[in-house]
Design a protein around this nucleic acid. Structure first.
Lengths: 140, 140
DNA sequence: TCATATTGCTTGTGAAAAGCAAGTGAATAG
DNA sequence: CTATTCACTTGCTTTTCACAAGCAATATGA
């Protein structure tokens, strides 16, 4: 169950990105953190795409090694951990928003998503600010 | 050799993006088109990451089905085809630039790449315009 | 004009990764 | 002090990747 998604190692920056988040699951985990404020293993597991538990463990480990998320004990429940985005992880938010913007242009939208896409188009900077804030001091 | 990368089909826009370009090779093909102006099968094959020929064929087919690239006969060589970006494909450029920007922040850069990243940071709109122009009337 | 090379693929096969189910161990709840 | 929750790990099957070889259509050179 290697933590190693195979590397391109060409020096290209796109390839570097692919090596760190370019598989079928990693970006969904990051989306869950960025958009839905998820922070615990069980939350990721119960996301709508049903990631397998071994894959999830592997990807979280990889993200931690890459310095994109950090893992800390939950002070209120000693068998739980809290995963949170580092600055390097937060810097991925603009790219994630670009993916959403693109998707929003080419696929039908629920009202909820329509609102998000509108926000990305009209007030990207503000949204970014808001996400940063929310991720750094979560409400729950 | 199915052209079907398995789908998430959750309705999420990030998942939609992943379903259309979220594997280890598709974005590299698009990068080759956007950044290096590649347009033929053989060019993609000889890229620095050494994509396998069956994977390349599969991904090009998929990109065409998704309406991101289009395939046309080369009028100057009847055994060759020319792959080019559609509008839907061109709309992916901002996301690709975001990936590069992110990578540029977290990995050492050659002077050449440094220049590109600087351009993305300082004149993203101009660069985008330039890429559009170059992709739509290629020099070669 | 006829062998040879180029171009864009397809096919076959082993290796790697994904996906599923079941199990483990530590912490907490009842 | 038993049962449950939480965060994983392990084992196994299925799917996908990666490498090598082959192939058909067009082009080139003698």
């Amino acid at each position: 169950m290697s933590t190693s998604t195979k590397k391109h190692s060409s020096g290209c920056l796109v390839a570097y990105g692919l090596d760190t988040f370019g598989d079928r699951w990693t970006l969904l985990i990051l989306r869950d953190m960025v958009l839905y404020g998820m922070r615990r293993y069980g939350q990721f597991l119960s996301g709508e795409e049903k990631i397998a538990t071994n894959i999830l463990a592997d990807r979280l480990k990889h993200l931690e090694q890459e310095g994109i998320v950090q893992r800390a004990r939950d002070p209120e429940n000693r068998r739980s951990y809290i995963y949170s985005l580092t600055d390097k992880g937060l810097d991925l938010v603009p790219m994630i928003l670009e993916i959403i913007r693109w998707g929003g242009k080419y696929t039908p939208l629920t009202p909820r998503r329509k609102k998000l896409v509108g926000r990305i188009n009209d007030d990207c900077a503000g949204l970014l600010q808001e996400i940063r804030q929310r991720v750094q001091n979560p409400v729950e």
